[in-house]
């Protein structure tokens, strides 16, 4: 088990599994957030129901563990990748394999990490005295916050445009029949998730703003 987790392939399997579970989390998170569009009562109601559920704390620890595994192992993987080529090329030109998303995984990932810290600080540990809805909508009146949020969600889309299908390849889930569909699903999923999350601050800024 330890040998597996230390092996090159084993580490990637951990990153991929954690990444795919995080994708599942994103789906539930986005679905919940869409209550924002329904209205203040509906959203606050949803938030309260979640907070009352004793299982929430379990889910939160699970989520934190997924993030920790994904981030720590992927950073270790990238560190090793750097070390594997101590002297770089003067010139390097793609022959067409990699994509924009695949080349920027570490940068989109690091931006997501910064986003994660800001995001948790604002919404998890922010002052929700007037209800979570107010907290969220007020935060989204700041145009810099909205811009940062949308930028981070673009990074998420980019991260998943490669990450989703890459995770299946890492897990050995590959077949001439369905791999093309996994790739299509990855494009669709990344666009849907990034677009969905980015929609909320834009909607709050342009629709609910008193500016």
């Amino acid at each position: 088990m330890i040998e597996f987790a230390r092996s090159s392939i084993g580490k990637k399997v951990l990153v991929a599994l954690a990444g795919l579970f995080l994708c599942l989390f994103l789906v539930t998170h986005l679905a919940g957030n869409l209550f924002l569009l329904v209205g203040e009562n509906a959203f606050n109601h949803y938030a309260e129901a979640l907070e009352k559920n004793p299982l929430l704390i379990v889910a939160e620890f699970g989520l934190a563990a997924l993030f920790l595994i994904h981030i720590l192992v992927s950073l270790q993987v990238k560190y090793e990748d750097r070390r594997a080529r101590p002297i770089g090329y003067l010139q390097q030109k793609s022959k067409g394999g990699s994509s924009w998303g695949s080349r920027t995984m570490i940068f989109s990932g690091l931006l997501l990490l910064v986003f994660l810290v800001v995001h948790i600080k604002t919404f998890k540990f922010g002052d929700a005295g007037e209800g979570l809805f107010r907290l969220v909508v007020t935060a989204f009146q700041n145009k810099f916050y909205v811009a940062f949020y949308v930028l981070a969600m673009s990074a998420l889309g980019l991260h998943l445009s490669h990450g989703f299908q890459s995770a299946f390849q890492t897990l050995g889930v590959e077949h001439p029949g369905y791999t093309p569909w996994i790739k299509k699903a990855g494009c669709f999923f990344s666009a849907l998730i990034a677009g969905g999350f980015a929609l909320l601050p834009l909607w709050a800024y342009f629709n609910l703003g008193g500016h």
């Binding site: 580490k11 990748d81 070390r83 594997a84 022959k95 394999g97 695949s102 080349r103 299908q165 890459s166």
Partner: peptide, 13 residues
């Protein structure tokens, strides 16, 4: 001391 695979497919290309 080889690196890890990030499925970028430059090898295939």
């Amino acid at each position: 001391g080889f690196g890890n695979c990030s499925n970028e497919a430059e090898c295939e290309a």
